[in-house]
Amino acid sequence: MGRMARRLAPQILTLAALVALVSVFFPNFINISFDGSRFVGPIIDVLKRSAPIALLAVGMTLVIATRGIDLSVGTVMAIAGAVAAWAITSGLGLPLTLALALAAGLAAGLWNGALVAIIGIQPIVATLILMTSGRGIAQLITEGRILTFSDPGFAFIGSGAVFGIPFPTVLWMATAVAFAVLMRRTALGLLIEATGVNRAASALAGVNATVILIAVYMASGLCAALAGIVTTADIRGADANNAGLWLELDAILAVVIGGNSLLGGRFSIAGSILGALIIQTINTGIVLSGFPSEYNLVIKAGLVIIILVLQSPNLSADWIYLRSVLLPRRAD
């Protein structure tokens, strides 16, 4: 446990600093109240609104651990949302609707994984194919409009609450825990890391690297489908043009802020989740603080740069060096 805390310390400190920073501009940021049926407050909103990024980040972490990248997750969200909205409006019932949407995510992952692992296309190119063409598929399903529904069961996924906690929060937490446990209680974590560090060596040691690669892209597709379901349930409609638009970049950013290397290998799902919370805190914080919209991206970019610079290994090495130089002098 101590090792994990040490590994995640920069992310936890960053998040705490951000919460403090937003509180300066919006003092009620950490207030949480109970309105009789659920908890409400800006922090609860962050925990709820981080669902899509957090879910995507879980899958993205695994893909990045294999030295890959999945640019298609935003589009897969739109496809899964479109499938779900179509299924629920066609009267297929909630269980079948969810199954179909998740199957769409898995199929998208299988496609990406096959392109990467079997055909051998670079991940960034392979997933770009689906990223650019997939919205067309989603638009075909929704026939170009926002496909709305009113099924209360489906809507619950977006706006319901369990023990006062928003359901999307429960969903991303459960997903993250499930994946983390799956990775560390089985050998999948090791096999993914080994494939990411050195695919050739892993294959020679008998690791079925092809299957591992396909599996991580399918996991990413599954997480993207979950995110798509949440987003669709949230607005009670499938918006093929906008659902998950550019969210793949936030997901990648979450993984990187979470301290995972884009060069693959060692990964931490908990780190990526913290990264997602950091990004969502920035997003929500900007709106709450009341700056004009024109500043949104500048503020976000500025904060992200500061965070990444503070986390960079070079800087921490410099810091250790500086300390070693300065501290003895101070002792004099």
Binding site: V40, R49, N242, V287, G290
Partner: peptide
Amino acid sequence: DFTRSGGKQVMESFLQA
């Protein structure tokens, strides 16, 4: 951003604020 999802998220923050 002209989207339903964007409208809902920002409105939630407005309500909080």
